[in-house]
Computed example of a mutant assay.
Amino acid sequence: MVLVSDRPGDERRSTVRVLPLVQARKLAKVPFVEMADGRLQGVVSSGSDPARVYVSSIGAADHALSCSTNNNRPCGGLGGRWACNHIKAMVTEAVTQYGGERVGRFLRVEADDTFEILDQINGTSSSTQAAVVFARFLRHLSYLELPTTSGPIPELHWFPASGAVR
């Protein structure tokens, strides 16, 4: 499920509209992708080192491209305004999860598939603090470690109850 709040007035509600995923994703290459904080951002596994991950992002307004390891070492494949393979993989998975039209609209480009979106991204290389995105990813992982229960979980009280979503 995808939590969305793109309707006027949603920020004043205690529940958020929930949409089904466009398509199921394979989480091995890109375990985390989100549209938040004015960026399409995610965590992407390294192709060469299974113990390394990259935090990649594209600014929604300025198309600023950023890619570095979780400890802020820059990606060697990011060159100026051209996206590295980590950013390409992140966009591919974002389109799978959210749909091309929605990702294109978020990034303010007239595109609805991965190749069109990447073709219209004319950003510059920038450095975004990877630690914030990586911490959000680790927080999501911590939910998987919670014991199975049918009762309420205080940490997840903000999730909408099934049937309460309109």
Rank of each mutant, 00 (worst) to 15 (best):
P152C: 09
T148W: 11
E34T: 13
M1A: 15
E116C: 05
L21Y: 08
K26E: 15
K29G: 03
Y98A: 03
S150K: 15
P160T: 10
T148R: 14
E93I: 07
Y143F: 13
I117W: 05
T92R: 12
G38M: 14
G76Y: 07
P50C: 09
Y98N: 04
L107C: 02
G99I: 08
Q23E: 15
G163P: 01
E101M: 09
S46A: 12
G38S: 15
S142P: 05
L156S: 04
L19R: 14
E93V: 12
H157A: 14
A24W: 09
V33R: 05
E34R: 12
G100T: 08
S45K: 15
R73L: 11
T96M: 07
S142K: 08
A36L: 15
F106W: 04
T124I: 04
E155K: 10
G59P: 04
H140A: 15
R12C: 12
R73Y: 05
Y98T: 03
R25A: 15
A94W: 02
I117D: 01
G99W: 06
C84A: 12
V33A: 09
A161I: 06
A28Y: 12
L144E: 13
L3Q: 09
R102P: 03
P154D: 13
L21A: 11
R73V: 11
R139C: 08
L146V: 05
S125D: 03
L156Q: 10
R7Y: 14
E101L: 11
V44I: 10
L27H: 15
R7Q: 13
V2Y: 00
E155I: 09
L107E: 01
V133L: 07
P147R: 13
G77C: 06
F106L: 06
D6K: 11
V33M: 08
L138G: 07
G100V: 06
S150C: 09
T148Y: 12
V165N: 07
G76L: 13
M90N: 02
P31A: 13
T92Y: 00
M35P: 03
R73A: 10
T128I: 02
